[in-house]
Nucleic acid binder design. Structure first.
Lengths: 112, 112
DNA sequence: TAAACATACATAAGACTTCTATGTATATAA
DNA sequence: TTATATACATAGAAGTCTTATGTATGTTTA
């Protein structure tokens, strides 16, 4: 698990990227997917995730659809057309930022 | 200039890396060096920089030496032996984190 | 079968980091 | 003489995230 300091500011980018590639996902599913894809190195907390999802919905970047699964409610999130643009911008800005940091910190990444 | 959201959490790493490679630097010099190295894309603000430098000094990671330049005081910061360890850890953690993000976001960086 | 763990949502209080604005003061360029 | 650059610093506000808590169901295991 990385120190929270490092992960700061990346939550929205991660959520939007995942929802750009999946028609719909629910909150818990997002936490599990990120945990799985990062080998447990990034674990989103509910206290950060849910308020962010709500904010993205309020901004028209995501839409929701509540579904009953057994007796439980599951809230699916989907990205809007506007949201896809925002997602692409966020990811590309993050890419540029990482390139800058790689240069600034003189890093050697394991790419390829 | 990147959105501040992205840069969050990287300030300490940047400062420590620069001071690992330079015997001594003063606050204003750090802002200028970062601005120069990143082509203006990362501009550290004083409101974030100075409190961070003070905190790192309080933690024994940095030491200071005030020098008179003309009629002005310049406060040079140097990294301690303990600080160098912390710096190396921070940079290596950041490297791992970036590798994780590159995989998670499926990014193509301009390395090499 | 009771306890523990996983699923699934949510919020509130506090902590931490950063931004904006402000303040002080000198030196230099337009 | 006005603006810009150098050089430090802090206070208040804003934003993000953590920790803790709450509710409720489903499943595994001792």
């Amino acid at each position: 698990m990385y120190s929270s300091e490092l992960i700061k500011g990346t939550l929205k980018t991660i959520i939007l990227k995942l929802l750009s590639e999946n028609d719909k996902m629910y909150g818990y599913e997002i936490t599990q997917k990120v945990k799985e894809l990062t080998g447990g190195k990034i674990q989103l907390t509910e206290g950060a995730l849910y308020p962010t999802l709500h904010a993205l919905e309020a901004q028209g970047i995501l839409t929701t659809k509540a579904v009953n699964v057994g007796n439980r409610i599951r809230k699916y999130y989907s990205i809007t057309k506007t949201g896809k643009k925002v997602a692409a911008e966020k990811v590309s800005e993050f890419t540029e930022f990482m390139n800058t940091m790689v240069y600034l910190l003189d890093l050697k990444l394991n790419i390829g």
